[in-house]
Design a protein around this nucleic acid. Structure first.
Lengths: 221, 221
DNA sequence: GACACTAATGTCAGCGTCTGACAATTGACA
DNA sequence: TGTCAATTGTCAGACGCTGACATTAGTGTC
């Protein structure tokens, strides 16, 4: 590593140049246009050409920002998930595993607006969630992404509790249960009429309270 | 309904004609060739044209048997899942929910050979399972299919226990937990060296025994 | 056994996703 | 201003998948 790189690693990044800012604007514009088209006319009935045309770039450029059509559909989800995971890592160490997960998800959903508003309007993000739930190909990808997140969650829980993730199945099982609750909540919310984020938050809290006692036992072995 | 149809419904179906048998043979040949190619050179690196050519039919014919390339990859899984679900429905009514699920999955895996051997060799079926686990696009579909199966399982459990699936979240939560165990077992098995079905069966039994006590409580409200 | 009927298949054209290659453009920096 | 590198556009093409229409091949009837 050169001296310059060492310095760059320690300081906050220098103000991004015109090139970088332009790239970010193009990316955000692609996400916004894509999500607007997906929510208005459906994922399958929207072509990549349409999205690219709406932002006035070539189709080839779209595929330089996103590896495939699915990826752009999950752009705001990706931000929200990072936000949630960061919230979990910030929970106090003495909190029980399930309480930490519960706190993280409720906190994250309470402050999700700030995390994504510079990319897409939160209201659009929520509408896109429904499109994902109701589009088979997107639902499949969503479940795979969820499975990947579960792995990260289980590792973090194991770390917090000082357990070996490869030897003790309990972190994975707790996370699987937790994930199941989140998914059931999201599904029921998606089937309902209420659009608000608060509704989803409350519904999730209710379900978590319902199953909490079952799994909240001490883990000090 | 005409008299003829009523009679046909009651008798076992008449011996299938040449046309029907030929169709079945073509279908099985497509599945076998597809799975052989997928397991040998990978799912992504196998084209539909290759599969069709191996069976000496046109690409268009392939797409008349399977709606897409993914579907043929799950043909033997589909049979196995039906086999498992039938096993669950055949469990004695007085068995506890988790015990019924456990019994069904262990029984099904013990007799899976007979259920699929006329379509593909069981050994090929198991190798394909690993391809699915390690191919992102197939894993995504696999998880969606699993989610659909979970819905059916939860409904069946609710029926057995006389619960309302829409009012009581416990069937879904139990099934989510159960599914998590199955998936973890399958994943660990896939990462290992052992190819045998017995190994997977034993591993699953071990994991189920591990979490069983946590959730096996009485459900009589 | 020849016949008409219908199901199965083949052929062809075309759309949409995605990629590699190369040329043209545009910001960065001396 | 001019050089360098990053970004974008253009083009050709592979692959998945579908509709339309012609062709082939079982099925039941006379």
């Amino acid at each position: 590593m050169t001296t310059d790189e060492a310095v760059a690693d320690q300081k906050t990044p220098p103000p991004p140049g015109l090139r970088e800012r332009k790239k970010q604007r193009t990316r955000n514009a692609l996400v916004r246009s894509a999500l607007e088209l997906f929510t208005r006319q459906g994922y399958e009935h929207t072509t990549v050409d349409e999205i690219a045309e709406a932002v006035e770039v070539s189709q080839r450029t779209f595929f330089r920002y996103f590896t495939n059509k699915e990826e752009v559909a999950f752009a705001s989800q990706e931000s929200a998930e990072c936000h949630f995971f960061a919230a979990l890592c910030g929970r106090p160490a003495d909190e029980a595993p399930l309480a930490a997960l519960r706190g993280a998800v409720l906190d994250a959903w309470g402050s999700i607006g700030e995390a994504i508003e510079q990319m897409v309007p939160p209201e659009l993000h929520m509408r896109m969630y429904r499109v994902i739930e109701s589009t088979p190909s997107l639902l499949a990808v969503h479940l795979r992404r969820t499975a990947e997140m579960e792995e990260r969650l289980a590792s973090e829980i194991a770390r917090r509790e000082g357990l070996d993730i490869d030897a003790d199945p309990r972190p994975r099982l707790l996370v699987a249960m937790f994930s199941g609750v989140i998914r059931v909540s999201g599904k029921l919310w998606g089937e309902g009429e209420e659009d608000s984020m608060v509704t989803l938050r409350d519904l999730t809290a209710f379900h978590l309270d319902y199953v909490g006692p079952t799994l909240a036992g001490q883990w000090d072995k």
